[in-house]
């Protein structure tokens, strides 16, 4: 099982993408898509990725909702900053992290960068701190609290 289908979710996603792009379901389409998805998932084995198990799908769905809400909110905020003439300062904030799981950190990096207004800059593994850049920086402490309460606690619940 693990040898023939090492990454079931990646293979399923590739297969779904193949069907969506073809826009019809026939024997040939399903066969070719299935073979391609299987081979692509097997080729992921050479990367020797660490094991991952998604334990709490409900918590993950909740996190997605939170991220979507934050993206809408900060899109509005950044659009106002660009179009307006408000005085503001931008700057870097260093945040100490409790999470060490590489997948959790990668997810956090993608979330922070996808949200307009905040940008992931670097991760420093010795002290387990991250550096982010904030467009409208008023209070550093508040950003530390926001990132930790909004994302880190939920990500730790999912990945650790």
């Amino acid at each position: 099982m693990t040898r023939w289908l090492p990454f079931p979710s990646a293979a399923a996603a590739l297969f779904a993408m193949w069907l969506l792009l073809n826009e019809r379901v026939g024997a040939g389409v399903v066969l070719l898509g299935g073979v391609l998805a299987l081979r692509a998932a097997q080729s992921l084995l050479t990367l020797e990725l660490p094991k991952i198990r998604l334990r709490r799908p409900i918590a993950a769905a909740k996190l997605l909702l939170v991220v979507f809400r934050e993206i809408v909110r900060s899109n509005n905020a950044v659009a106002r900053i660009i179009l307006g003439r408000k005085q503001r300062t931008s700057g870097f904030v260093r945040i100490p992290m409790d999470m060490r799981n590489p997948y959790g950190l990668a997810a956090l990096a993608c979330i922070i960068t996808s949200t307009p207004g905040t940008l992931w800059v670097e991760y420093e593994s010795a002290g387990n701190t991250i550096l982010i850049h904030v467009l409208d920086l008023v209070d550093e402490e508040e950003w530390v609290r926001t990132i930790k309460n909004l994302y880190e606690s939920r990500l730790m619940e999912i990945f650790e």
Partner: peptide, 15 residues
């Protein structure tokens, strides 16, 4: 600055 401009592109790519 460059780091501020990086925030602007995300508007088009997300919403």
């Amino acid at each position: 600055s460059f780091y501020e401009r990086l925030h602007a592109t995300t508007l088009g790519t997300t919403l």
